[in-house]
Amino acid sequence: MKEKIRNCLLTIGIGYMVVIVLLMFNSYANSSKYIMISTTDEYDAKLAEYKSKANNITEESCKNYYLSFIDYIEKDKINGKIEVSEYFKRVFSEEPFLSFYSKGIEACSKLTQEAARENSFPLLFLGASIQQDAIMGAYTTQYELTYPDRLVRMIAEPSIGTVQANIKYGKEVEIIERIYNIVTEEEVVR
């Protein structure tokens, strides 16, 4: 009987170790399919609101803007295949203004938790914010502390904040073309 228990424990133990190692490397291997989403901070939101009034940006144009961007990154045009979570596709389709005029870190953290519930990893840095580094840092740190078994991939538009984040956190931030180059300004403001 004791021998049986011992053999059983041996099998469980070795099985457990194999599973953990596989999960670990699987989570790293999958890290490229996660994209985190962060929106502009409060200052940028006000600026964006001002610009939107000036340029007459509508909810529909915002939606097109995001959906085109999702389409762009999902078509493997940046380094490695990325899947945007269904949650964020829904947010962009149903409430584009919410994403566009996010109210700083608090809103980011709400979005983070929502995304976490859906087991997705969205991150998209929008806006050429000078404070973007703060958002990136706060957002990513929060996610890393909550899900330390995952890797966050940071993708951002080129901005002062992006450069600052690169320097400050020593984490590689992939730079994409400005979204306005992908979705032309006319399309956004149509």
Partner: peptide, 30 residues
């Protein structure tokens, strides 16, 4: 097997440590 397992975990954690903001966060978890 335990030593090999620990070796894999430690190597994995150090390998990906430069990709995180919170230092050694994977290490603490694993």
């Amino acid at each position: 097997a335990f030593l090999v397992f620990t070796g894999f975990i430690v190597i994995g954690c150090f390998l990906f440590n430069d990709r995180v903001i919170v230092p050694y966060v994977h290490f603490g978890y694993y």
